[in-house]
């Protein structure tokens, strides 16, 4: 038996429910509607417009800073690795070390003679080193300049990052405002239509009076 879903004093609820059941069954039997159609309409989920207050300020400058810090950390780690490689070059010890110290001592004593002997033969090499040195200096200047530009770009990226986030937020807010304005337009249209009907009724009333 159907559960009592109506309450009313002074009427035969059971009888009314039976009449309702017959009406509903009759409509379904005639194929006027299907149970599923009604259920679809009953279970529609509302999708409210987003609230402008719900649009978050998503920009978090610390994210960018974190990524820069990450790059710095990576660089420092690389330097440490290079130092470790340098320190890992094996040092000469024992007999070989003693011979090496002796040769360095002798070489120190005869160094002016070696310098004289090599003076004429090493001029070309010296010039070459000079040229290389100036090239390295100009290269260093170029690298420094590049680093400067890199820093400038880094700042630009920060600013752009900021802009992109703000633009995204503002566009979202504009979309929400636009949707709200559309509702206002509909509201006004509805009001206007009501007032037009009212005007017609008023006209009819006035004409009838005359």
């Amino acid at each position: 038996m159907e559960e009592k879903w109506i309450e009313a004093e002074g009427i035969d609820v059971e009888k009314i429910m039976e009449e309702i059941r017959k009406r509903v069954e009759d409509k379904k039997r005639k194929g006027i509607y299907k149970e599923e159609e009604i259920e679809d309409i009953e279970n529609v989920e509302l999708l409210p417009l987003p609230d402008i207050l719900d649009v978050p300020i998503v920009y978090q400058p610390e994210d960018l800073e974190k990524s820069y810090k990450g790059i710095e950390t990576l660089r420092e780690r690389k330097i440490k690795e290079l130092r470790a490689i340098k320190n890992s070059i094996p040092q000469v010890t024992g007999f070989k070390r003693k011979v090496k110290d002796f040769v360095i001592k002798i070489r120190g004593k005869i160094f002016p003679l070696l310098k004289l002997l090599s003076f004429f033969t090493l001029t070309d090499l010296y010039d070459g080193v000079q040229i290389n040195s100036s090239s390295i200096e100009s290269m260093m200047g170029y690298i420094n300049e590049s680093v400067h530009y890199l820093n400038v770009y880094k700042e630009h990226i920060k600013v752009l990052h900021n802009y992109v986030h703000h633009i995204t937020t503002e566009i979202t807010k504009l979309k929400v405002e636009n949707d709200e304005l559309k509702v206002r337009v509909k509201e006004l249209e509805s009001r206007l239509s009501f007032l037009e009907d009212r005007e017609r009724a008023l006209e009819k009333e006035t004409v009838d009076k005359k």
Binding site: K4, W5, I6, E7, A8, G10, I11, I16, E19, I20, R23, V24, K27, Y33, I38, I41, E42
Partner: peptide
């Protein structure tokens, strides 16, 4: 009046039709 315990649209619609067409029910309500 009439209290309904569930919002089954077709049943409520049929109830309204019953109320609309059944004069004695309407008067009792």
């Amino acid at each position: 009046g009439i209290i309904i315990k569930e919002k089954k649209f077709d049943k409520v619609a049929a109830l309204i039709e019953e109320l609309r067409n059944n004069e004695s029910m309407r008067e009792a309500v």
